[in-house]
Design a protein around this nucleic acid. Structure first.
Length: 469
RNA sequence: GCCCCCAUCGUCUAGUGGCCUAGGACACCACCCUUUCAAGGUGGCGGCACGGGUUCGAAUCCCGUUGGGGGUGCCA
């Protein structure tokens, strides 16, 4: 695969973040629409915080939203930790070429010196001391005078005064490479042409660009996209906010809904229609059109997208999508009482009532339960009307007399009962609905009764009759 | 503190000097449809942060103010 090379370089320090997912999606769209490559690099060099299981989590999460490692546009995963030798070698070259120098000052030394001189940060104190490598010696980059201009596809040119960039650390006192260096060396080795990442990296960029140049290479095309924020407009954090992609997957959000929603955070498809097939968004996405300000990750809007996607499913697709919740240990009914044909037939009335797949089984639980689960509230409402007991009794009689047992005949029969009590069917329905479903709200009543069957319907009606009579 | 980024309805956005009386979506409200609840339909509420310029004309360009955010590690 020739063409531009994009990359996504997460560090496996926890569950996969929705913000990372959006960045990955944008990189993926770009690589695909331009006949380029999406390189996945796991930046696992922070030993204290990395755990191998998180890496698989990232790969699985990417696959869930459509970024599959077996796609020809996908390359990797590479592991940064495997390239430590190259990082150190690059540092060595930088040192030999005079772009870096060793320093033996500890954090405490630096603090003391700053205090004494009334300064802040690291002031290049060891630049001319001619120190060599040694235990506890860090290698620092010698930031040149002048200024650094970062050409950014979403933000335009950003100018940094080099005098304000301190001589940052390339190699730790124990000889291990730092992120800034490793990241650049890897991008160089993997021939990355475009670095599209979150805005929090923008302050790092002049430093990285300086490393690229000192190593004799042209820097890549940069693009810093806005961060995702919470209701307090703070950057989404793993601690505070619900950001794990897998959590949304487990709650029954559809991958397509999630990726569609994520795409529209900070960018909008042409034509004013937000819900778009992936192929279309992929073709339309341009970094130049990305918004400059941070975007709020809105659960309500995500839910709305999800509802739309659920409603667009065929009954068969819906059933397949619901399976994990239908047969989960905490499903609302025992697996052996579940009936696929009934669920399939009811799907069109379940879909508009479920915001997430996880909610779907609960919409029709009464069909697969031995007896409905009454809530106190429903019971109270069922018996609230003085006519409730009579309606129940008359309904039993009317249903018993029915020849054909169908939604249509049930409806007609019940309308007769309601009319006899001078009630609107909707009003009269409450005790019947509660008797059969345990709740006051739910899917259309007569369709439900059709599937519940004559015997069970009548049994439930009589049970409630006894309960409130 | 210092550096950088940003600023259109509550939220996500359209808008690249006249087509803007600022459009759409989510949320909210009302009505319609209706066997409950949803879904759907119709309508409504609601915004260019502020102050200066530039221009015949500014949401759009410039400057400042204010407000938000990000970064300031021998984390990534």
């Amino acid at each position: 695969m020739s063409g531009p090379r994009y990359r996504f370089a997460p560090s496996p320090t926890g569950f996969f973040h929705v913000g990372g997912a959006r960045t990955a999606l944008w990189n993926w769209a770009l690589a695909n629409s331009q006949g380029g490559t999406f390189v996945l690099r796991i930046e696992d060099t922070d030993e204290a915080r990395n755990r191998p299981e998180w890496t698989q989590g990232i790969i699985d999460a990417l696959a869930w939203i459509g970024i599959h490692s077996d796609d020809p546009h996908f390359e990797g995963p590479y592991f940064q930790s495997h390239y430590a030798e190259q990082h150190v070698a690059a540092a060595q070259r930088l040192f030999e070429a005079g772009h870096a120098y060793y320093c033996d000052m500890t954090a405490a030394d630096i603090e003391a010196r700053n205090k004494a001189e009334g300064t802040q940060g690291y002031q290049g104190w060891s630049r001319d001391r001619g120190l060599g490598p040694g235990p506890g010696h860090v290698l620092r980059f010698k930031v040149p005078a002048g200024s650094t201009v970062v050409h950014d596809l979403v933000r335009g040119d950003v100018v940094f005064d080099n005098a304000l960039i301190e001589d940052f650390v390339l190699l730790r006192g124990n000889g291990s490479p730092m992120f800034l260096l490793a990241n650049v060396v890897d991008d160089m080795a993997m021939e990355i042409s475009h670095v599209v990442r979150a805005e929090e990296h923008l302050p790092n960029t002049p430093k990285q660009q300086l490393i690229w140049q000192a190593l004799g290479h042209e820097p890549p095309v940069w693009a810093h996209v806005p961060v995702l924020v919470n209701e307090a407009r703070k950057k989404l954090s793993k601690r505070r906010d619900k950001v794990a992609l897998e959590m949304y997957r487990d709650e029954g959000y559809l991958a397509d809904a999630m990726s569609n929603y994520l795409m529209t955070l900070g960018w909008a498809p042409k034509g004013g229609v937000e819900i778009q097939p992936w192929q279309q968004m992929q073709a339309d996405f341009r970094l130049e059109d990305v918004n400059h300000s941070s975007a709020f990750f809105d659960l309500k809007k995500l839910a709305a997208f999800n509802g739309e996607y659920i409603r667009a499913l065929s009954p068969e697709e819906f059933l397949e999508a619901c399976r994990p919740w239908l047969f989960a240990p905490d499903a609302p009914f025992p697996a052996d009482r579940f009936d696929e044909q009934t669920f399939l037939a009811m799907a069109p009335v379940i879909q508009p009532r479920a915001t997430t797949l996880a909610e779907a089984p609960g919409v029709v639980d009464f069909l697969f339960l031995e007896s409905p689960l009454f809530t106190d509230d429903a019971l109270a409402k069922a018996s609230a009307a003085p006519s409730a007991i009579d309606v129940l009794r008359d309904t039993v009689a009317a249903f018993e007399a029915l020849g054909e047992w169908s939604a249509e005949t049930l409806k007609t029969a019940f309308e007769g009962v309601a009319a006899a009590h001078e009630l609107k069917p909707g009003k009269a329905q409450t005790p019947v609905r509660v008797a059969v479903t345990g709740r006051t709200v739910g899917p259309p009543l007569f369709e439900s009764l059709q599937f519940l069957g004559r015997d069970e319907t009548l049994r439930r009606l009589r049970v409630l009759e006894g309960l409130i009579g």
